[in-house]
Design a protein around this nucleic acid. Sequence first.
DNA 1: CACCATGTTCCTTG
DNA 2: CCAAGGAACATGGT
Length: 281
Amino acid sequence: MPEGPEVEVLVRHLDPLLRGRVIQRVVVSRPKIVRPDSLAKLQTLLREARFQRVSRRGKYLLFDLETRRGSQRLVGHLGMTGRMFVQPRGKERPRHAAVVLELDRDEFIFEDTRYFGRLTLSQQAVEALGPEPLEHAEPPEEFVQAMQKSRRPVKVLLLDQAIVASVGNIYASEACHVAGISPKRAGTKLREPEIARLWSAVRSVLEEAIRFGSTVPLAFGSDGTKDGLFYYGRPDGAEDFYEERLRVYDRAGQPCRNCGQGIRRIVQAARSTYFCPRCQK
DNA sequence: CACCATGTTCCTTG
DNA sequence: CCAAGGAACATGGT
């Protein structure tokens, strides 16, 4: 499910639900998800821990906990198909529930069909993240430098979480389109004003997605219908707003909303990229 | 059966 | 050292 915006919307949903609640029991049915922690370590540390706050960095969810041994931060990542939600204890758990934190009458569930996600006390991945787009109105120096010194294509650079956090495969294509820059351009070939344009395009694309995700009805629980490209699925019966939303992603062959040219799909670093050959140079 | 999928990491090759 | 490509992880949708 996740790029930064989806994680942000999920965090805003979870924070008020979890704040102040105490973990009674930790059930890990997929030990892989908890790596590099051990199951025993997690169970020991999290039992009787109280949620203080849920926040986000990049695509990671940060759960601040007050444990018997002081403050701890649990780090979550949704991989491609992860979901997190709170449901009443006793309700049937989804088939791919990877980790369950039993609270009082409720339980927190981390479900992940493909099991690419993580829930761990290791801070290592978070520490390696590049700048957070929505925290810097101007392109940070480290971003400009990283772009200029690499010959990799722009779209591939945007996917590198060490260069800029929060951008995933959908919003990388979207940002290149908004910036009017071809996804194939090498970082070294970008002029400074183009890098600045790219930075603000990333910001506006992420911001727009967060606004969209916050206003549309979402079903966070396992009973939401299957994905669309904004996740969580919408509740059954909710209208489908999702088609109109994206500029280029998954729109191969369809007309560019700016100029009418056909959107093209190419493959970069083994992932799909979409762009308008006329608007993006 | 084929191919595709919102992510990350590791390995090989050049 | 860097870059590119591929595979792996595991499951499901079309």
